[in-house]
Simulated scan of single mutants.
Amino acid sequence: MVSNSSMPYDSNLTNNKPLEIYLFIDPFCLDCWSLAPIISKLQMEYGDYFTLKYVLCGKLDVLNKKISNISEDQYNSNCHSREIDHSSDKCVFLPHLAAISIKAAELQGKRAGIRFIRRLQELLFVENKDITDINVLQHCAQNIGLDLDEFIRDIYSPSAAKAFQCDVRISAEMEVNEMPAMVFFNENIEDEGLKITGLYSYDIYVQVLTELLECKPKPAEKPPLELFLSINPIIAVQDLAMIYDQPVHKIERQMKQLQLQRKAQKLQAKNGPVWKYTSKCLY
């Protein structure tokens, strides 16, 4: 669904890029996970034309399902506690711990935040881990090379909580109620943002860029496959085929060759098989 956002563009575009995109995600949303390769291709080909800002949607209802068998007073108390109750009969997690951990990771840099989000989604959708568990979150941070002590401090700091609340406020102001969602802004501060909710084919997003730029953007050259895999080590062949504009069978053959070289392995994920590149991965 395409609509106009009621919130006008109000931030400074950097590096003379004419567009800015707000990407609204929920780390528990399968469609948000499915959008990731499309975003990767969009940045790869047209990243010179836009800046990208990740925003966490405030409607993280799945987190609250982890809370059971506790009274309202216990729930409210636990929301402000640093401790997690691992008693035998109760499952008590901070309801927005996973979301706040993303903001804590972002405090170590924008790229660190993006790596953390991607790894968190891999843990959930590929490895079936509980990403509301503080131990899983710490392992995720350590896995992508964050300063672990700083990360743990930031999770419980006012800065991370305020950053998450800021995302919630932006979601409300831009009237984002469905996941995933993208809001596009151009350089004209008088124009409203163009909001797209839902998951669409790659061509649709390129068409939006073209319309907002009022010209056809020139795509950048794609990097070699293994270089891309070193940065995005877990991905489905269908997604790689979309990114590289090649038939699925050709990508599958290349991944099997990497498997024979012990550079990749095939894994079973929630929504089908994926490949994991294991040679010189960043995490």
Rank of each mutant, 00 (worst) to 15 (best):
Q121I: 14
Q121Y: 14
Q121N: 15
L124C: 14
L124T: 14
E127V: 06
E127I: 11
N128Y: 10
N128T: 14
K129D: 05
D130M: 13
D130F: 10
I131C: 15
I131K: 15
I134S: 14
N135H: 03
V136R: 07
V136N: 05
L137M: 08
Q138S: 10
Q138C: 10
Q138W: 02
Q138G: 09
Q138E: 12
Q138V: 13
C140G: 07
C140T: 11
Q142M: 03
I144W: 11
G145V: 15
L146R: 04
L146A: 02
D147L: 06
L148K: 08
L148E: 15
E150H: 04
F151D: 04
I152E: 10
R153T: 09
R153F: 02
D154C: 08
I155L: 14
I155T: 11
Y156T: 09
Y156K: 15
Y156G: 11
S157C: 05
S157Q: 06
P158H: 01
S159M: 15
A160G: 12
A161Y: 15
A163Q: 15
F164R: 11
D167L: 05
D167F: 02
D167C: 02
D167S: 02
V168A: 09
V168L: 08
V168S: 13
R169G: 06
R169Y: 08
R169V: 11
I170K: 07
S171Y: 04
S171F: 03
S171H: 03
S171T: 12
A172T: 03
A172W: 03
A172D: 14
E173V: 08
M174V: 12
E175M: 13
E175V: 11
N177D: 12
N177V: 14
N177W: 09
M179T: 09
P180Y: 02
P180F: 00
A181I: 05
A181H: 04
V183Y: 05
V183S: 08
V183Q: 10
V183M: 13
F184S: 11
F185S: 01
E187R: 00
E187P: 00
I189F: 06
I189K: 10
E190R: 04
D191W: 00
D191F: 00
E192D: 12
E192R: 06
L194S: 03
K195H: 01
K195A: 11
T197I: 11
G198H: 07
L199M: 13
L199G: 15
